[in-house]
Simulated assay, not measured.
Amino acid sequence: MLQDKVISTINKYKLIKKGDYILLGVSGGPDSVALAYILNSLKKRLGIKLCIGHLDHAMREYSHKDAYFVRSLAQKLGIPFFFSRVRVNQAYKEASEEQNARSARFSFFLSVAKKENINKIALGHNFDDQAETVLMRILRGAGLYGMLGIMPKREISGHVFIRPLIDLKRKEIIAYLKKKKIRFCIDPSNAKNIYFRNSVRNELLPLLESKYNKNIKERLNDMADSIAYDYDYLMRSASRFLKRQGQSLQVGSLIRLHPSIRRLALRLSIHAKQGDIRRITFNHIQELDDLIINRPDNSIVDLPKGLYALKKRGKLYFRNKY
């Protein structure tokens, strides 16, 4: 039974505890609709309270129909509904359309969660999404952190994001919806390879499955799971180092660290300063390494979003230009 598999995932990753108030991010697509139905069927068993949030990105001509569908779904399930609309292409301009839409969604979810005293936000990412994400990051040249893929549980701005469907395959979700005769929306842009993820999903993964490894999705998920344990160990080591440092980092101590721990400590320091490291590239980290090891006093390295690193009197500082 699908619900039992979701319970297993919840227990494995400690996603939910009794008394949680969870905002379900529902787009109207099959994954998020299944998430709503499954968690609603389990809410008494889990002892949780649910609500639904939907953001209309105003990126498609008929996006308002998805909003109406999700509102009706929330009414049918008897779950509180929160809605907002933002013209993503006008409000967000610093990244790709996909990334801008993601930023808008997360901003909306966090805003609702803060206002309504919600402690967790559940999203409908599944097993196939994980495989796609890991493969995309391999192609982009990600480091260890990127190879984690989609984390089942992650804290962002004081709220915990969870993915209870992360162990379910897309075909299992579709089969569940069909068996229960549950309607969902189809985003026509998913069939077009105008976005990187769509190309990976519709072209590259089928090619790898048919010609190289029929279990490629399983192997990519296994890799992400294995890397998560390695990353957790390195993260703990880097965090212990930073706790001993204070507001600035001792250059000598950084030089003595293993490069893997040092680079992770740098990423954590940047994240603490600006709350986001998505635009920090391998080249940035290499430059910081060179700053620490080779460059003279008073040297700086410019980083995204107006942040810069300054080497001064044996210490490394991260500061904002404005």
Rank of each mutant, 00 (worst) to 15 (best):
K18T: 14
G19K: 07
I22W: 05
G28S: 01
V33C: 01
V33R: 00
I38L: 12
L39A: 07
K44M: 08
R45S: 10
L50D: 08
G53T: 03
H57D: 04
H57W: 05
V70S: 05
S72R: 05
L73M: 04
Q75P: 03
Q75E: 15
L77K: 05
G78D: 07
R102K: 11
R102Q: 04
S103A: 15
S103E: 14
R105K: 11
F106H: 12
S107G: 09
F108Y: 01
F109H: 05
S111V: 03
E116Y: 06
E116Q: 07
E116S: 01
E116D: 04
N117L: 02
I118H: 02
N119F: 07
A122K: 07
H125K: 07
Q130I: 09
A131Q: 09
I138K: 02
L139S: 06
L139D: 05
L144P: 10
L148W: 01
R154C: 06
R154L: 12
E155L: 09
V160N: 11
V160I: 15
V160G: 13
R163E: 13
R170K: 15
I173T: 06
K179Y: 06
K180G: 09
R183V: 10
D187Y: 01
D187P: 06
P188A: 08
K192P: 09
I194W: 11
I194C: 01
R197Q: 05
S199I: 13
N202F: 03
P206C: 04
Y212W: 13
I216E: 06
K217W: 08
E218Y: 14
N221T: 14
D222Y: 13
A228L: 15
A228D: 13
Y229E: 15
Y231V: 04
Y231I: 00
Y231N: 12
S237E: 11
S239Q: 10
F241W: 00
F241S: 00
G246H: 00
G246D: 05
Q247G: 14
S248E: 06
L249M: 03
V251L: 13
G252D: 12
R256W: 08
S260Q: 15
A265N: 00
R267C: 10
R267D: 10
S269A: 09
K273R: 07
D276P: 06
R278T: 13
I280R: 10
I280K: 11
T281N: 10
I285V: 14
Q286C: 13
L288G: 03
D290H: 15
I292P: 07
I293R: 12
N294V: 01
I300Y: 05
D302P: 02
P304S: 12
K305A: 15
G306E: 09
L307R: 04
L310R: 05
G314L: 00
F318R: 00
